[in-house]
Design a protein around this nucleic acid. Structure first.
Length: 493
RNA sequence: GGUUCCGUGGCCGAGUGGCUAGGCAGGGCUCUGCAAAAGCUCCCACAGCGGUUCGAAUCCGCUCGGAACCUCCA
């Protein structure tokens, strides 16, 4: 029996605003779509949080035994900065600034994005389609929407007719908006616009003469609307109805709302059964955003090469920090919070080291099977990683309380504890052990020599010598810890 | 202005009606030659004001404060 059959996973569905029991459409197969980045710029930490959140989702679903097809797109077709008819798209703008071809920009920042996600130990999606690789399919979807009478062409551009769609559908159901309120909230439609209604959105845009990325279509030489690619690629790879669609909270409106409308208009079904939204990462209480410049780049964070931090942090520590908050909550980023997370991370990993070397004893108070159930219950409750981590720390306390290497567990329970701890720490949370010694085995051997010499000095009660060894090593960034089973060392990073 | 959400102990952050996570920091104790590490333990909080209830951080109302979205952004 697969794990997913014995676990009642509940997911907060943005569409219904409730936690719902998750039922896969075609178990064990499961379709997951996540909106990926627009690759015109370095990916910032806020972007990363969303992808790390959904990496947790992907990992847990996989752990439960689902065969997940995980699709995450790369937006590599330039889209306009705003709804104005003229203007330069972001990729072209960047290409001009860097004196590169648009596709060089795309390549450069796609590679950079992949490198960063790898550092965070985020699994790549199983399919990573690009918008420019699916122009034909996008044109086909536009044709279907036109056939359905829910779009209109003006001067080579095609717009989705939101008002008409809303006559028989509920535009705004995902984000809780009413079309009347949206209309009253918009500025007057300016005379230049080709749109019949300010809420209408472009699904094909005729390219201005200066626009570099352009494709031939039945309507004009131009480029697809931004919202279209996700509708097209999710249905192409996951089918007209699929399990989970994720993305950042900021994409709920209008992007995801438009996706629903496009799906319904082109195929009659809305496509997505469970909508999940990751919340924003804030910096100094404000959202990180490429356009406002309130950002922190992952590399700045890793190296500490920024005024916002005292020091650098290992990617897995940052990941741990993020895992200590629920994906649906806003998380504020600060130097202090990271320092606290770093210490907690080491405590967790030290316990894992001890657990690996632990030996079985006789059964005590700690019930591994009950504890294990609590770990699953935490994750089943809408991927509640902070509660899972709290449970892991319960196990840490138990592990640390052992006399010597022997735990108060029989061999079978010890193995179950080890296995469960490992599964959640590494497979589900996706944490990694920071390799302690960059010096590798050589350093380890040298350290063993020093530790033995110091142990001898202490046995001889030559504390001046033993303390000198300890102090000088500390000054060199190597901390000695005298435990019950001898001395170990850790390196400061 | 509209829509959504949040306000938890020194800090971060879970928790949707009673059983009051967890991490970091701080106090005490144990261990240790000393220190660190580790363990035990203490600090029992829920923006404010009303209301519902036998009982509320948790439900309702109001006030104050903050965030996201309503224009490209994860």
């Amino acid at each position: 029996m697969a794990l997913y059959q014995e676990n009642d996973l509940r997911i907060y569905n943005s569409l219904t605003r409730k936690k719902e029991s998750f039922e896969a459409l075609n178990a064990p197969h499961l379709g997951l779509y996540v909106c990926g980045p627009t690759v015109y710029n370095d990916v910032h930490l806020g972007n990363c949080r969303t992808f790390i959140s959904f990496d947790l989702v992907y990992r847990y679903l996989t752990h439960l035994g689902y065969k997940v097809r995980y699709v995450r797109n790369i937006t590599d077709a330039g889209h306009l900065e705003n709804d104005a008819d003229e203007g330069e798209d972001k990729i072209s703008q960047r290409a001009r600034l860097e004196k590169l071809e648009p596709m060089e920009i795309v390549q450069k920042y796609t590679l950079g994005f992949h490198q960063i996600m790898e550092k965070f130990n985020a699994h790549p999606p199983t399919i990573e389609p690009t918008a420019t690789g699916h122009i034909v399919e996008q044109i086909q979807m536009i044709e279907k929407i036109l056939e359905a009478g829910l779009a209109y062409e003006v001067n080579g551009s095609v717009y989705f007719d939101v008002a008409k769609y809303n006559q028989s559908n509920d535009y705004g159901k995902l984000s809780g908006r009413k079309i009347e309120e949206l209309i009253s909230g918009t500025r007057e439609l300016d005379a230049q616009s080709e749109k019949r209604n300010p809420l209408d959105f472009a699904i094909w845009k005729k390219a201005a003469p200066s626009h570099i990325q352009r494709w031939q279509s039945p309507w004009s030489e131009g480029f697809p609307g931004w919202h279209l690619e996700c509708s097209v690629m999710s249905t192409k790879y996951l089918g007209p109805t699929f399990d989970i669609h994720g993305g950042g909270m900021d994409l709920k409106f209008p992007h995801h709302e438009c996706e629903i409308a496009q799906n319904k208009a082109s195929q009659g079904s809305e496509g997505v059964r469970y909508w999940m939204h990751g919340n924003m990462l804030t910096l100094n209480g404000q959202r990180m955003s490429k356009s406002t410049g309130n950002t922190l780049l992952p590399l700045e964070l890793f190296t500490g090469n920024t005024e916002k931090l005292e020091k650098g942090f290992h990617p897995t520590v940052v990941r741990f920090f993020m895992m200590q908050a629920h994906y649906g909550s806003q998380l504020d980023f600060s130097n202090e919070a990271l320092l606290a997370a770093e210490k907690g991370y080491h405590k967790l990993m030290d316990a894992w080291q001890k657990l690996q070397n632990a030996q079985a004893g006789s059964n005590g108070e700690f019930s591994v099977s009950e504890w294990r159930q609590r770990c699953y219950a935490a994750m089943n409750d809408d991927f509640n990683s902070p509660v899972l981590i709290a449970h892991l720390f319960e196990a840490v306390r138990f592990i640390n309380s052992a006399e010597g290497a022997q735990l108060a567990l029989n061999a079978k329970d010890l193995e179950l504890l080890r296995q469960t701890f490992h599964d959640f720490l590494f497979d589900v949370l996706g944490l990694e052990e920071i390799s302690e010694s960059q010096g590798g085995e050589k350093l380890d051997q040298v350290m063993q020599v020093l530790i033995e010499l110091r142990a001898q000095a202490r046995a001889d009660r030559d504390f001046a010598l033993s303390d000198a060894i300890r102090d000088k090593l500390a000054a060199a960034g190597v901390a000695l810890k005298d435990g019950k089973d001898g001395t170990t060392y850790t390196l400061e990073n």
